[in-house]
Design a protein around this nucleic acid. Structure first.
Lengths: 368, 368
DNA sequence: ACTTTCTTCTTGATCGATCCAGAAGAGTGG
DNA sequence: CCACTCTTCTGGATCGATCAAGAAGAAAGT
């Protein structure tokens, strides 16, 4: 006999949910047959299947309980993405949005869902990671890598870390930040620039704004910020210039407003830098704003090079010269590595970058 | 005796994972005690707990299996977000990104994760919804509402639908599209405009570009596109103008490029509209581009009003006059409704909008 | 008629945890 | 010494499904 259930979904939620067993009993079949009605249509006669599904519908049984199914099958049908910074930041920064988009596109193809994990501060790092029902992880973060990566590694699932040291027991995916940055700086040097300002992403992710903390950098194996800075210096060294020709400020939170202030300071120094190397396009946009504040023409008085090539880069005026990196492809490649993990040793992908010259760079004003 | 496990996480993954029972045996305690070591520190002596955790670490036991835990506790620790359009679109459109950001901020506070579901086409709608291990749903989509919403409703979980008819057995959250649109149009009418072009979001989400399909609109109870169009007409009617003063094009995919083309057509007609009502800021930006193509000055020759007030709206030149809607708050409010569902009847929130006048609107060129 | 195969359906075991009720032992007070 | 509470720990039942193996009956081949 069919268990009577309230007509509408509104009724008091306290009643126990309908289970596969209830359905089986109501339909007069075994649990397995009921299960097969949903999962293996070929395992029972179409007529019976239709009847079972109809009764299921009548009973308000939506389908097999996902949690139970996961437990039994061992598959979650989703992959997790961990942001080092706050979850909200992931939806603010254009680079991580593009990355997510790449991840999402692959998830869609695979029919999997995308679980985005919160990070409730260093103390509880790993809490969410430990408890996530997923088939694999993508780690996208810039700071305190070890805590997060260790938690992910402990799960023993196919995992990929973005911009992580290759010493981790998981696949990694990255760009060659150092040589990309070198290329950006070399471009400016080629245009005759000799005095540079650097807008750096914050090295430690601790909200610090101010002169670059070179001493702290030594501690960090590998962050985009450090690598890009080294790349800038490489180019200067190759041209026989001194480190002192490089004035660098860290800007917290990759924010345009903060960058504007920092750039203002850089550009108020004498002799004034003739070019600004920004470690992200958002920072570069901040530099453009500061140039406007100071009445400087870009690229007449000042050249600006960005990094990332986010959509905004070509929308802004003047369009930014910047280092293009394949943000979406980075996400897609990471997702692919999670869904089809390499057998044996982990892979370490390096994606190509390319300097895109637009309108924000020109000959140095004081060039001979 | 402690089961020996390979030193590194690299070893062949075929060995069965360590379970709570294994850990309990290794530590010489019961499963419950081992479980409590992770979940209820107050239920066992600190000394024993430390020992258990240490052994767990040694065995490579990362913590209780999330799937099993979910099944037993009945809680997933995450909420699901369903996009009607493709998953990728969710990370492309600025309005949905802002919405997600709002959702994410609340998730972060609640310590929950955010599961983003794929939609693999109308045929399989509900597949992912049925199988998602979540504690509630947020439905964010514009089209074929019923299929998705029915699948969500069947799950009998706390759910919120954005821009859905209130007939659904779930909470909804929305803005008053119609009166917001009316206000936008009234603003232009007040400036002396009498001939309007409308750039409409596609009514059916089927990739159609072309003249507005008014006949189709009648079929749809409630989509932003339809409501906004009605709002525009309300304003015209109130001013004694005819519907024929309103030329409308649907633009598929809320894309700037498509909008540019559509706006070009609108502006090539004679007599030329003096104002464009765009149903989104992206469409409005397309209109600005088309104006540039045609050598029209905004707001001198043409006024443009957007909708949404995405970040781009004030970054673009001229800054867009637009209808501000609280996108992030919309996401946050939706998430709050999922985490703390109203007892009894579902709630139906209407969030406030506000016309923000910036630089893209001015007096009609032919005004008396 | 006998074996074989195919279809259709069922039973028992299992996935890996948490919850509930209660046992064992230590400490307290009368 | 007994009754009581408190802490610490345990075993059995349970969450809701899927899987592997096999039974019952129909169809087909020899």
């Amino acid at each position: 006999m069919v268990t009577s259930v309230g007509q509408d979904g509104q009724s008091d939620g306290s009643q126990r949910a309908v289970t596969l067993l209830d359905l089986a009993r109501a339909a007069g079949v075994s649990r397995t047959t009921a299960s097969n009605a949903f999962n293996r249509p070929d395992q029972l006669s179409p007529k019976l299947r239709a009847r079972v599904l109809e009764i299921a519908d009548k009973m308000g049984y939506a389908g097999p309980n996902p949690m139970a199914r996961m437990l039994r099958t061992g598959r979650a049908g989703s992959i997790g993405v961990v942001f080092g910074k706050s979850l909200t930041y992931g939806f603010t920064d254009p680079t991580s949005i593009a990355f997510l988009k790449g991840v999402a596109s692959v998830c869609e193809k695979e029919g999997a869902s995308l679980l985005i994990l919160p990070e409730t501060g260093e103390a509880q790092v790993g809490n969410a990671i430990q408890g996530a029902a997923v088939d694999g992880f993508i780690v996208y973060c810039m700071h305190y890598l070890t805590a997060v990566n260790d938690a992910v590694a402990a799960r023993q699932l196919p995992s990929v870390a973005v911009s992580a040291p290759e010493t981790m027991p998981m696949s990694t995916i990255d760009i060659d930040d150092r040589s990309a940055a070198r290329e950006a700086a070399a471009h400016l040097i080629g245009l005759g620039h000799r005095r540079f300002g650097v807008l750096a992403l914050d090295v430690l992710g601790d909200g610090y704004d101010g002169p670059l903390r070179i001493d702290q950098m030594a501690k960090l194996e590998c962050t985009p910020s450090v690598d890009r800075y080294r790349g800038y210096r490489d180019a200067l060294a190759a041209a026989g210039l001194q480190d002192t020709d490089l004035q660098a400020f860290e800007v917290s939170g990759n924010s345009e407003d903060q960058a504007r202030k920092a750039a203002f300071k850089l550009l108020s120094q004498r002799p004034r830098p003739t070019a600004i190397l920004a470690m992200s396009d958002r920072l570069a946009v901040g530099a453009l704003l500061a140039a406007t504040d100071l009445g400087l023409d870009v690229p007449g008085d000042l050249s600006v090079v960005g990094f990332d090539d986010i959509p905004l880069a070509k929308a802004v005026t003047p369009a930014l010269t910047t280092v293009h990196q394949p943000l979406e492809e980075k996400g897609a490649a990471a997702a692919r590595l999670v869904f089809h993990p390499p057998k044996g040793r982990p892979r370490h992908l390096i994606l190509p970058t390319e300097l895109v010259v637009r309108d924000s760079t020109g000959l140095a004003p004081d060039a001979p």
